[in-house]
Design a protein around this nucleic acid. Structure first.
Length: 527
RNA sequence: GCGGGUAUAGCUUAGUGGUAAAGCCCUAGCCUUCCAAGCUAGUCAUGUGGGUUCGAUUCCCACUACCCGCUCCA
């Protein structure tokens, strides 16, 4: 994102958030109680949008393929599963932040140091009268000059200055005292600055299961899953034994996951509760890299089909050293959000790491027996893992458009349109009687509504002028609107009897179509 | 987690230490033959909790949430 446009993008994002609330796409969770940090609720239209996205994903990747089957795993997860996967042990280490450099350090890796601690209670700047009161300390190791400690302290206090022109050197320190110390781990070895208290950084939500459970009962601990993948690996053998699947094959899952993010940000983009759409595609080791590339193409095609063009996506081939340690190859698919280019999906070739750790953890064989080659092997896996909420947000951002339209009198106005692909649009068609005070028009419109309702989400509206009703639907992305007028009733001859106007959202063009052809016309365009 | 900012109606904004204003939206009625028409009427707000004060939406403090910049994101 280029620097000059960032203000514009912030404004754009604010408009999108505002539209989402106004029209019932996305609300803040528990808003009437002040909101719950990092949690969001989908309103009536958002729920439809997200459902359409998930349904299309499921249809394309599970129902229309013979090689992928579905799974719907429990959210509460056995602690043994997450111990085996590395989620419990891996990132539960307490971390400290350096108060000066803001570096984050693992508490257990800070070397014990000895020397003199120089404590301060604050700093003042005589000339401006500026004052700060805040405890701080610097460790001067044996042989180090105490003036170095004071210099470090001035740098620390200087960060609170509102006037950045003031030199740290001109600050006077207050409340100085010193004490000698041995074997302390509370100071940054790099610069001697005091660290924050160690804090646990495991991002998993932990809970206790069972009526008699208490916090001290280790066996009662369960976790909300931090990703949907693990239940697929844990159920690998059951799926294999019950479904007659043959390599290569995939297990797909859509569901909620939970991470106690330090810092939720960017509307729904980074939430503490989020939904994933994941496939674990199992294969022979020699096919892994090829399939990773094939999945990348398949997923890009999917995004194209739901209305996110290739030009707005970025593919990042994660280089050696930046991938997770178990991954042989990883692509990130990123989207150009108004707040920056951010990840929608990761496609990771994870080798046999996952099945390996669960085989080891459970003591059960997770090997696959190949009938043709009479060979036993632990399959490798390619994982296309997409964020559902992120994709829904990308769909809204991509669809949002403001258009200047000029009416017959030459008056200009702004039309806000969500240009959703018809297949994911929350409402597929609006049905309107031209006038609401003509009972024949209303009755006919209700008939048309009833005709279409079993096949798609239809919205009936009879209030306000017809143009207003069109604009209302533009703003929520409804691709088609059908209007019942006097021609429909046969007032201008039998040729037009039982025909309606159908108005297309993007072009605002209208055409006349027989009611009996409506269903087919619409279904052709929304599937 | 750190630093900065913000919080008034569904939305966008006024304003005030003493009855909180407008436009848009929405609802109802009248009217209305295809792109936010008109008239009339109506609903709805000072984020939460403290403090100062006779009185706080306004001043102060804390909290919560959101936004921006860092940080973090297995």
């Amino acid at each position: 994102m280029s620097e000059p446009s960032s203000d514009k993008n912030t404004v754009l994002m604010e408009k999108i958030v505002s539209l989402c609330k106004r029209r019932g796409f996305i609300f803040q969770s528990a808003e009437i109680y002040g909101g719950l940090n990092g949690c969001w609720d989908y309103g009536p239209l958002g729920a439809e949008l997200k459902r359409n996205l998930k349904d299309y994903w499921w249809r394309k990747h599970v129902q229309e393929r013979e090689d992928i089957v579905g799974l719907d795993g429990s959210i509460l997860t056995h602690q043994a599963v997450l111990k085996a996967s590395g989620h419990v042990g891996g990132f539960s280490d307490p971390m400290c932040d350096c108060l000066l450099s803001k570096a984050r350090l693992r508490a257990d890796q800070i070397p014990a140091q000895s020397g003199t601690i120089w404590w301060f209670t604050g700093a003042t700047h005589a000339e401006s009268g500026w004052i700060v009161t805040r405890d701080y300390a610097v460790l001067a190791k044996e042989g180090e000059d105490e003036n170095k400690a004071r210099k470090t302290a001035r740098q620390y206090y200087a960060q609170f200055l509102s006037d950045k022109q003031i030199s740290p050197k001109t600050l006077d320190l207050t409340g100085e005292r010193s004490e000698s110390v041995t074997e302390t781990t509370r100071f940054n070895p790099e610069n001697g600055s005091l660290l924050t208290e160690p804090r646990a950084f495991n991002l998993m939500f932990r809970t206790q299961m069972g009526a008699s459970s208490d916090e001290n009962d280790e066996n009662a601990i369960a976790y909300l899953r931090p990703e949907t993948a693990q239940s697929i690996f844990a159920q690998f053998k059951n799926v294999l034994d019950s479904s007659r699947v043959k390599l290569p094959f995939g297990i797909a899952q859509i569901g909620k996951s939970f991470r106690n993010e330090i810092n939720p940000r960017n509307f729904t983009f980074r939430s503490r509760e989020f939904e994933q759409m994941e496939i674990e595609y199992f294969c022979r080791p020699e096919d892994g890299l090829r399939l990773t590339d094939e999945w990348l193409e398949a997923r890009l095609k999917f995004y194209e089909e739901i209305g996110i063009p290739r030009e707005h996506l970025h593919i990042v081939d994660i280089p050696d050293g930046e991938r997770a340690f178990y991954s042989v190859k990883t692509y990130d698919i990123e989207y150009e959000f108004p707040f920056g280019i951010q990840e929608l999906e990761g496609i990771a070739y994870r080798s046999d790491y996952d099945l390996g750790v669960h085989q080891k953890g459970s003591g059960k064989s997770l090997e696959y027996f190949d009938e043709e080659t009479k060979e036993r092997l632990l399959p490798h896996v390619v994982e296309p893992s997409a964020g559902c909420d992120r994709t829904a947000l990308a769909l809204i951002c991509e669809a949002y458009d403001e258009e200047t339209v000029t009416d017959d009198k030459g008056k200009e106005e702004t039309r806000v349109v969500l240009r959703f692909s018809p297949r994911i649009a929350p409402i597929k068609v609006g049905v309107f009687p031209l006038l609401k005070n003509k009972p024949e028009l209303v009755a006919k419109a209700r008939e048309v509504q009833k005709l279409l309702t079993p096949f798609m989400n239809v919205f009936y509206d009879e209030t306000a002028a017809i143009g207003r009703r069109y604009r209302r639907q533009d703003e929520v992305g409804t691709p088609f609107c059908v209007t019942i007028d006097f021609d429909t009733l046969g007032e201008n001859g039998d040729d037009l009897k039982d025909t309606v106007t159908i108005r297309e959202r993007d072009s605002m063009k209208q055409e006349r179509i027989a009611i009996r052809d409506l269903r087919g016309y619409l279904l052709d365009r929304i599937l």
